[in-house]
Design a binder for these strands. Structure first.
Lengths: 186, 186
DNA sequence: CTTTAATAACCGAACGATCGGTATATTCGT
DNA sequence: ACGAATATACCGATCGTTCGGTTATTAAAG
């Protein structure tokens, strides 16, 4: 990866942080400039579409990262139980044990969300499809598999919110412990 | 209730809507003015502390409403199963089958949340305490009862997020079906 | 290897619009 | 007549955005 690509990667990571913590409307350009170490004008050089393009790029990037994560966990070899466990651990890492909010949540709030809804929905659909497939392999019929996948995503999203509010990481840990069981055990 | 109290009630309800949908930073004064039908000066007459006071008032109001709802469901007479069912139905109504976001979630985002954290946390603690008590009455030991209460709140919050993203109310309905079982059945 | 041309990256300063908030005056219900 | 409620007009600060121009980096030409 070239120096330039590396730099862009880092900028996107910082952007992701800001949008994760503050949502779209709370992510002001001055804050973004502060957190990335770039001036506002420089940000407009990297993202001519302004703040909206920044959010779009970040969302696409998260979508790709999610697919990659699913590929290296759900998509790898092993029993369904093993892969469900790997996926759960990856989620733990991704959300830093509940310390970080989900971009799909924070960017789905308010009026600006209308623009991002398709991207957000696609990412969550990918997530659900992977989990559904895993539950299918574990022996559940289609409808039940989907229901369980949705239940898992619900658990993760809910745990992130409750953990954020209560400041208790144990809640997130407990909720994620349930995921492998839901996906593979009757 | 006097005309003035009635009017204030209605204004608070509108304020609640705005904060629910847009969060704190997305709830601009002009939007609030539009949605309440009041001019900014009128809003500052009702809430001299400005936007922050509006959010505080709305949060306190939601907290009271929650306590009242818990009192008329969990606190009423009947078997634990009956009361768990009543609580679940009340939650369905409160969140309009998943159409509305939770104020505790939308106001816990970003920097302004620091100010509201105590109020939000208190409301959610009240919620958890009521559910824990119900699970205790249903025969669960203290630790398990708390875990189940937290799992229920997690489910509700998660279902609200996922439903908002996917636009599928069935997800919310399914998640809430699980609540009575979690609180009263082994 | 230099020199030069082109391009990418960056920044300070400013733009108009809107932000949250306020001062003053007028209307309204009682 | 009196206070509560609303309306008008305005404030400084910050919003997202853009402009003009400088500094690095890369590529081509000698």
């Amino acid at each position: 990866m070239s120096v330039r690509e590396n730099h862009r990667r880092e900028v996107i990571d910082r952007l992701t942080d800001v949008f994760r913590v503050h949502g779209y409307e709370g992510a002001t350009l001055s804050r973004i400039a502060r957190e990335t170490g770039l001036q506002k004008a420089s940000l407009y050089h990297l993202f001519p579409g302004g703040k909206e393009e920044m959010a779009q790029v970040v969302l696409r990037d998260i979508g790709l990262g999610l697919k990659e994560m699913l590929a290296t966990t759900v998509g790898r070899s092993g029993t369904p139980a093993e892969r469900a466990s790997a996926l759960t651990n990856a989620l733990r890492t991704f959300y830093e044990d509940g310390r970080r909010s989900c971009l799909l949540e924070t960017l789905s709030l308010g009026e600006p969300a209308k623009t991002f809804r398709p991207l957000i929905e696609e990412a969550m659909s990918t997530w659900r499809a992977a989990m559904t497939g895993l539950a299918r392999e574990a022996g559940f019929p289609p409808g039940e598999a989907t229901r369980r996948a949705e239940r898992c995503i619900t658990l993760v999203q809910g745990a992130l919110v409750v953990t954020r509010v209560m400041g208790d990481h144990k809640i997130f840990a407990d909720a994620l412990d349930e995921v492998p069981r839901l996906l593979t055990q009757p």
